[in-house]
Amino acid sequence: MRFPSEIVVDRFLPTARAMLARALADRGLTQQEIADHLGVTQAAVSKYVSGDVAVEERFSEDPRLQRAVDRVAAGFADGSMDAYEALGEFLEVVRAFEDRGPICAIHEEQVPSLEGLGCDLCVRGYDESVGTERAVLSAVRKATRLLEDETAMVALVPNVGTNVGMALPDAEDELDVAAVPGRIHAMRGRIDVPANPEFGGSEHVARTILAARSVDPSVRAALNLATEEAVLAAARDRGIDPIEFDAGYDDRRERLVTVFRERGEVPKVIYHEGAFGIEPITYVFGSDAVDATRLAIELARDAST
């Protein structure tokens, strides 16, 4: 467990001090004068100026910190800025870095369970909605692990890639649906998941889920596969009656809602046979990402036997 304040102390502060020390040295201040401004020893300033202190490049190369250093260095050099004002400049940078900035990125690396949450926990504090988002992201991550371990799914990954998505309970648009950005592909006989799930990570899978849950709120997840007759037959053998729908993308969400309402339910499997420039795709629905993925895997296994 790591707090963002630890990153500020361990990485941001040494980087900002080193950058400011060098900027002040370039303006002709002595090392002792620099030490007085920074509140450190002259020996520490010597290390900063000589480059003996490691800096975090994600901070030092960020224009926001560079501008703050320039303003503070100029203010210290001509006497127009005091320590209070300088702290204000750097605290503004810290706040920006903590809110979806480089401090947030480093924090996610050190605390993987924060990935995809946009630093909501640290910046806005814990609340129930964030807990719900975590649960959705966790379900999609678990679903992708199931896919990675299943060889029967490799042959059913479309050329455009597959994805598994799950919506928040009150989802309204694509940003309320978590999925894998960049899609999931088959490579060298195995499933490759390129990234952790994020909200807004899918467009087509998300729209399909939103159409389904607008008719049946218990349906919150889906996974897309290549359309294969063996998979559709496996679904029918399980008592599932797949719906065929038009492959066009225009108004697909609205058209699917109409199809589901005419059927009077959202079936576990829907499909289309493709169109010009559109690959034939099948969608498998579930109450959550794991549920949809497990059904897809079962259908894939049945289809391969």
Rank of each mutant, 00 (worst) to 15 (best):
Ile7Glu: 01
Val9Ile: 12
Arg11Asp: 13
Phe12Leu: 09
Arg17Lys: 10
Arg22Asp: 01
Arg22Trp: 00
Arg22Lys: 13
Ala25Cys: 02
Asp26Ser: 13
Thr30His: 02
Thr30Phe: 01
Gln31Ser: 01
Gln32Glu: 13
Asp36Trp: 02
Asp36Leu: 10
Leu38Arg: 05
Thr41Leu: 02
Ala43Gly: 12
Ala44Cys: 00
Val45Ile: 10
Lys47Cys: 00
Glu56Gly: 00
Val69Arg: 07
Val72Met: 10
Val72Asn: 12
Gly75Pro: 06
Gly75Ser: 10
Met81Leu: 15
Ala83His: 11
Tyr84Thr: 12
Glu85Trp: 00
Glu89His: 12
Glu89Pro: 01
Leu91Lys: 10
Val93Tyr: 09
Arg95Gly: 07
Arg95Gln: 13
Ala96Phe: 12
Glu98Lys: 14
Glu108Asn: 09
Glu115Tyr: 07
Glu115Arg: 15
Leu117Met: 12
Cys119Asp: 07
Cys122Thr: 14
Val123Thr: 07
Asp127Trp: 06
Gly131Asp: 04
Ala135Phe: 01
Lys142Met: 10
Lys142Arg: 14
Ala143Lys: 04
Leu147Met: 15
Glu150Met: 04
Thr151Glu: 13
Val154Glu: 04
Val157Ser: 05
Val157Asn: 05
Pro158Thr: 03
Gly161Met: 01
Asn163Gln: 11
Gly165Phe: 04
Gly165Cys: 06
Met166Leu: 05
Met166Cys: 12
Leu168His: 01
Pro169Lys: 09
Asp170Arg: 11
Glu172His: 09
Asp173Lys: 07
Asp173Glu: 11
Glu174Pro: 00
Asp176Asn: 09
Val177Pro: 10
Val177Asp: 07
Ala178Arg: 06
Ile184Lys: 08
His185Glu: 12
His185Lys: 13
Met187Leu: 15
Met187Tyr: 08
Ile191Met: 02
Phe199Gly: 05
Val205Gly: 04
Val205Asp: 08
Ala206Gly: 01
Thr208Trp: 02
Ala212His: 06
Asn224Met: 03
Ala226Val: 13
Ala230Cys: 06
Ala235His: 00
Arg236Ile: 03
Arg236Asn: 03
Ile240Tyr: 07
Ile240Thr: 08
Ile240Asp: 07
Ala247Ser: 14
Ala247Asp: 08
Asp250Asn: 06
Asp251Gln: 12
Arg252Tyr: 01
Arg255Val: 08
Thr258His: 11
Arg261Val: 05
His272Pro: 08
His272Val: 02
Ala275Phe: 11
Phe276Gln: 14
Gly277Glu: 15
Ile278Gln: 08
Phe285His: 09
Asp291Trp: 10
Thr293Met: 08
Ile297Lys: 03
Glu298Thr: 11
Ala303Asp: 05
Ser304Asn: 05
Thr305Ala: 13
Thr305Phe: 06
